[in-house]
Amino acid sequence: MSDWFPLWLSLRVSVIATLLASLFGVALAYLLAKWQSRFTAIVEAIFTLPIVLPPTVLGYYLLTLLGTRSTLGQGWENIFGSPLVFTQSGAVVAATVSALPFVIRAARAAISNVDSRVEEAARVMGLSEWRVARVVTLPLAARGIGAGVALGFARALGDFGATVMVAGNIPGQTQTLPVAVYDAVQSGDDATARTGSLVLGAIAVVVLILVTQVFARRR
């Protein structure tokens, strides 16, 4: 493969997307795990949609929500001076939304599984709710959260449909590696398609090994 731009772009986009999805996802998962109400199920269902929707449909929703004619899209353009869609930032948004459910689901399960007696003990000994979360709950849930973050990263790195809808397929600008592989196949460039696929495959295998061997193992 002569041009490594798509790989670097993919890595950059998925790292930023994973960070964003982790911050938002863990915070939301914490709230979902601790404050259970009727709405919890609805919120969780909405944030799980990216797993079950066809990625192109998810991309279409995002495009409608964030496009230049939408309120959010206009707002973004007013603040940053350029549109969100068909840019690398758009690719980050698509990857973040795709990664989010993996982080939320794993983190929520891990946080719910933390022994509530240990959290109670920490409260009784005077720790504020914020410190209970930081010192007790999140460290005890770290492995589960880590597994979700790793899967989210893999999902962000591998996203095709949502990215192509929101960020487009502009070589040298918004063309991520999965999109470049598709492009290469379309244009009969077997070598590029093969290299790109091998690289993505290798990263996915590493992530899966990480998830099963490091994060998911019981202490």
């Binding site: 109670e120 003990a121 009784v124 000994m125 005077g126 720790l127």
Partner: peptide, 16 residues
């Protein structure tokens, strides 16, 4: 709980 100034020991320690 935080404001009651208590100490508590459980059957199964509940340590970090």
């Amino acid at each position: 709980s935080q404001d009651r100034r208590l100490g508590m020991v459980y059957q199964h320690a509940a340590l970090l």
